[in-house]
Design a protein around this nucleic acid. Structure first.
Lengths: 134, 134
DNA sequence: CCGTATCCTATTCGATACTG
DNA sequence: CAGTATCGAATAGGATACGG
């Protein structure tokens, strides 16, 4: 019944700052965080706009990921009390420091996508389904 | 009974290359991958040595993560047929291209660890346990 | 338009015991 | 030393339905 029943947001009162770095890195891991951060990299974006851009994400996961990023100070949520409601999400300075790194990361991923596919295929050929010596 | 029952290694024959980038990024996500990669950044390291350095990791997760990284061509596994056995893990060139980025990432995490903690505390104060309007 | 609540599944991970 | 097998708990994530 707590908001962080199990899901992503951990309940306040449960401190867990053991691993310095990995704890923080876990904030930008998760299936959608990087995609969201990159999407709002050049200006505020509305909720529905985000949902359509990212495509594949459910409203639930979009909300949860946005809340976590907001909680950690990586984006701000601005509510315009209009009708219909309008909510914009916007990267903070802290998040902006990440963009260069994030882009390097995704560019690395794109550059080596084929290499990885090849390596994987080779591995699966040798260490086949049953670990078969054959 | 298959090696990829559910765990980390996905069974060959199930192609899933939909998302270009995220698919690949998922390879260096996971709780231990980055730690392992950084640990082998300056030369080959043995299994037990890895286990002690990383500390907190179980043999099982060490093995699984190593296998996945090997499968994706991020490290190589060299077995010396001695007794007792000796196995060394070593980063590939592809992985070495990642180190600069990985260090930038972890340094960002360290620089902003406090900011994040503060942001989180503030968030939890406002959007308290019940989402209470108060 | 922008969410939240519930339910359910798949995946991740740790503990433990066994092996070449 | 360097693993593998099995089990079980916790968590992430999807589908769907409801609300301000």
């Amino acid at each position: 019944m707590f908001q962080g029943n199990s899901d992503v947001i951990d309940s306040p009162g449960h401190e867990a700052e053991a691993c310095t770095v990995l704890e923080v890195l876990n904030r930008i891991s998760g299936k959608w965080a990087i995609g969201i951060l990159l999407r709002i990299s050049d200006g505020p974006v509305r909720f529905t706009e985000l949902q359509r851009s990212i495509s594949g994400i459910s409203r639930r996961m979009l909300t949860l990921t946005l809340r976590n990023l907001e909680r950690d100070g990586l984006l701000t949520r601005v509510v315009y009390p209009t009708v219909p409601p309008k909510v914009e999400y916007q990267a903070t300075d802290m998040a902006r420091e990440l963009y260069a790194t994030l882009r390097t990361l995704t560019s690395w991923a794109e550059r080596h996508r084929d290499d990885i596919a090849v390596a994987r295929a080779a591995y699966d050929r040798n260490h086949g389904p049953q670990g078969g010596v054959e």
